[in-house]
């Protein structure tokens, strides 16, 4: 379980998180929605320790995220980055097997390659892409490779940062389905941030809306359309008029 309690984070004078409190039960898929610049990515990065919160508490399975063996802590996580964040200088299979080629999860190269090819197959890519470089792939293929890398070491917790941004609707649907299948199949705890409402409905068990640095609304995805929250209604229906001020 991931538990964020009263987390604050500011960058200079800009207060991004103003007391974020959120609970993600083990084995469930939580999707965080919210406008651009509301701190969704910052919240994910705070859990991973990529950004240190100014105050508040983040617990993973009841233990503070910033204590204990960092390597063992991170080994429990997989993350799909918005742009893929694939390493340009490594081939596709070396990207996927990155964690299996070094560190505490190191395996022999042949075994790591075999696992990478299996994970590529799992995300719908054929073994012939294994020896290509990321620059030789389309955006959709790069997302799939990023997804394969995120699941390569079979993590307990997977984060997805804008998984469908920049993809056409069909490819976005494919990625959404893959994410849902993989999360269910692995029994992993998932946290996704997105603006894409089709992703929300495809991926989420629970939804949280982040606005003005706090969770404005949270609940099961089934209650999304009848929440009665004017902020959430404006966001999910994409209305310009409402309590959320649109900058024009």
């Amino acid at each position: 379980m991931i538990n964020m309690k009263n987390v604050h984070k500011a960058f200079g004078p800009k207060k991004v998180l103003r007391g974020l409190t959120l609970e993600v039960p083990k084995g469930t898929s939580m999707v965080i929605i919210g406008g651009s610049g509301t701190g969704k990515s910052v919240a994910l990065k705070c859990v991973l320790g990529l950004i240190a919160p100014d105050s508040g508490e983040i617990l993973v399975d009841g233990k503070p995220a910033d204590s204990g063996d960092r390597d063992a802590f991170l080994a429990r996580f997989g993350m799909l980055f918005q742009g893929g964040a694939l390493f340009d200088s490594l081939t596709v299979w070396q990207n996927v097997a990155f964690r299996l080629l070094r560190g505490s999860l190191k395996r022999p190269a042949e075994e790591a390659r075999a696992i990478a090819i299996e994970k590529l197959r799992r995300v719908g890519l054929t073994p012939d892409v294994a020896d290509l470089f990321p620059a030789e792939l389309s955006g959709g293929m790069q997302k799939r490779v990023g997804l394969a890398r995120a699941i390569a070491a079979e993590p307990e917790i997977i984060f997805f940062d804008e998984p469908t941004t920049g993809l056409d609707p069909i490819m976005a649907g494919v990625i959404n389905e893959l994410i849902r299948e993989i999360v269910v199949e692995m029994g992993a705890t998932a946290m996704t941030i997105t603006h894409d409402m089709s992703s929300v409905r495809a991926i989420a068990d629970n939804v949280a809306m982040l606005h003005d640095g706090v969770i404005q609304w949270t609940g099961p995805v089934a209650q999304l359309d009848n929440s009665g929250d004017p902020y959430l209604d404006q966001f999910i229906h994409g209305r310009a008029e409402g309590p959320i001020e649109a900058v024009r």
């Binding site: 960092r70 742009g83 964040a85 390493f87 990155f98 964690r99 070094r102 890398r149």
Partner: peptide
């Protein structure tokens, strides 16, 4: 470029 494209964050999440 690695920093701008989040590759450095990716390294950290991959325990490197």
């Amino acid at each position: 470029t690695m920093k701008v494209t989040e590759q450095i964050d990716a390294l950290v999440t991959l325990s490197t």
